Computed example of a mutant assay.
Amino acid sequence: MTQSVLYTALYSLLTILMVSVTSACSYSLPVAQSGNNAKQTVALGPDELATQCSQDSEGIPVRCDIEIKGVNPPAFYQVSIQLATPGPFRVYAESRRLMADSEISGAANTMSFIVNTRQPDGQPIQPDAYLGTSGLTLWFAAGFDSIKQLIVTPVASSPPQFTAANNSAPNYKRLFILGDSTVCDQNPQWHKPVGERYSGWGQVLPAYLNNDIAVVNYADSGEGSEAFNVIDGELFAPVAAQLRRGDIVLIQLGHNDKTTPQGLYIERISALVEYIKQQGASPVLISPMVRNVNVALSKQHLWPQLDVRAALLAISQQQGIPFIDLMAYSHDWVTTLGQDAAQAYFVRNDRTHSNEAGAHVFAQMLLHTAIQQQLPLAHYSKTAHQY
Rank of each mutant, 00 (worst) to 15 (best):
Y11R: 07
L13H: 05
S20M: 08
T22I: 01
T22E: 03
G35C: 08
K39Y: 04
T41E: 14
T41H: 11
L49T: 05
L49V: 03
S54W: 08
E58V: 14
I66P: 04
E67G: 00
N72I: 02
P74Q: 00
Y77W: 01
S80F: 01
L83C: 04
P88Y: 00
S95K: 03
R97E: 11
R97A: 08
M99Q: 11
M99W: 09
D101Y: 02
S102A: 10
E103I: 03
G106R: 06
N109V: 09
R118K: 14
R118A: 14
Q126V: 05
A129N: 03
L131D: 15
S134H: 12
A142S: 15
A142C: 15
Q149W: 01
T163C: 05
T163S: 13
F176I: 08
I177P: 15
D180C: 03
D185H: 02
W190H: 06
Y198V: 12
G202I: 06
N210L: 04
A214Y: 10
Y218W: 13
Y218I: 04
S221A: 08
E223P: 00
N229M: 00
L235Y: 05
A240F: 00
R244M: 10
R244A: 14
R244E: 09
R245S: 11
D247N: 07
V249E: 06
H255E: 04
Q262A: 03
I266N: 05
E274I: 09
E274P: 01
K277M: 10
K277G: 08
S282I: 05
M289G: 14
V293N: 15
V293Q: 15
W303V: 03
P304E: 10
R309E: 12
R309V: 11
A311M: 13
A311S: 15
I315V: 15
Q317E: 15
Q318N: 09
G320F: 03
I321G: 13
P322F: 07
Y329G: 10
Y329H: 12
T335Y: 09
A341T: 10
D350C: 01
H353A: 08
H353W: 10
G358V: 03
A363T: 01
L366G: 00
H368R: 12
A378I: 05
H385I: 14
